[in-house]
Design a binder for these strands. Structure first.
Lengths: 209, 209
DNA sequence: GGCGTAGCTGTACCGCAAGTACGGTCGCGG
DNA sequence: CCGCGACCGTACTTGCGGTACAGCTACGCC
């Protein structure tokens, strides 16, 4: 974690993205000025516009980075769940628990969901940005729905359910949990909601309960 | 739906709030310019600042109006649930169903949750605005938790639950459902999520399932 | 009937942030 | 040594939030 005191040549783009992500999650994209970013990154305004055509391009790069990173993390957790159990239900429940634990272990509250924060907040994003988060949501829906299919095939659900809606529930709960936690400044809300979702899945499928 | 062609004297404040709410939910508060509001409302810039000290005051008035309106609507639905059944669980389930039906009957997708849209998006709001939505969340948590107490007293839950976290789940699901519905432009997501919450409550408490 | 006040209009101006334009500099690989 | 990518510097335009005043009008109230 080297300080930006040294205006090291090269890598300015990465520094900008880092600063912009933190600032956006803290106070919103609109409230994050280019001037504050270039001051923090130690580059000039021309330097900024050399890397990003305009603020919109920054938003796009930001969310691409964010979504890719999220995907790696979550994939890792559920892959670990698959390693620890062959049962589709158990491995999914393990994945959820690992996720909740990871969230609970964050020193502060989860900084926020960039994708969600961009859903509100300006049309500006010429549709490209919205399309990006849209596709990301759909990918998660498909991925979760697939797991629910495998689970339902082995454990008939207690009540009939719509796999897509159940997958959406995870996304909605995570997003809403982040928002709620942010508003109430309570880091425990988000992991608690993930565990509630886990509990719901158990009540739906787990015959042992 | 009368056009604002007639610059009717009086009521400009109300017109501003109406326009500002729609614009904020569509593209964000930051992207909503005062100039576009006064153009739409047919008043001058001085007129705007006569009603609102600054943009922050507009945000505050906006969210006050929004939260009060929400409260009236939701209270009405759950009061109706209480009328239709004396059983705490049943009346709550009825309230949730009425809520889901109301959401499903909206011609378009729910326009969005102002409280949530203000959680991200600028520190600007001198804390007053954040405090408002914060208190609103806490009030809902208390109100729902009370109902869960009554329900749990009569129907012991299938698994131990935290009443506050369960109340938060409703808020998180609604907020996340709105966001998801907005992003995917699918009006059915939100009511589906409310019904999922209802389903969870049933699985937790209803002995008949 | 005079008087204040709410609800505006109009004009002029400031500061800041986004974005444009364009020329110059430095280091590195071919 | 040439070009190109990664910048720096300066200067300028535009739009928006916000300030500062001066004035106008309809309505309610003592």
């Amino acid at each position: 974690m080297q300080e930006t005191a040294t205006p090291k040549r090269g890598g300015a783009r990465e520094r900008i993205l880092e600063l912009a992500e933190a600032a956006t999650l803290e106070k919103g994209f609109g409230a994050t000025s280019i001037e504050e970013l270039i001051a923090g990154a130690g580059i000039s305004k021309s330097g900024f516009f050399h890397h990003f055509r305009d603020k919109n391009a920054l938003a796009k790069a930001l969310i691409e980075r964010y979504l890719a990173n999220d995907e790696v993390i979550l994939d890792g957790l559920f892959a670990r769940g698959d390693e620890l159990s062959e049962d589709p239900l158990q491995s999914f429940l393990i994945g959820l628990k690992l996720f909740a634990e990871m969230l609970a272990d964050l020193p502060e509250a989860h900084p926020g969901c960039l994708a969600a924060s961009f859903v509100y907040q300006e049309q500006l994003f010429d549709g490209e940005v919205r399309a990006l988060s849209r596709r990301s949501f759909l990918r998660w829906r498909a991925r979760f729905a697939e797991r629910f299919d495998a689970i339902a095939a082995k454990y008939p659900p207690r009540v009939p359910i719509d796999r897509a809606a159940l997958a959406d529930m995870a996304a909605a709960l995570i997003d809403g949990g982040i928002t709620l936690g942010k508003s109430l400044k309570d880091a425990k809300i988000l992991p608690a909601q993930v565990l509630h979702f886990r509990n719901y899945v158990r009540l739906l499928f787990d015959p042992a309960i």
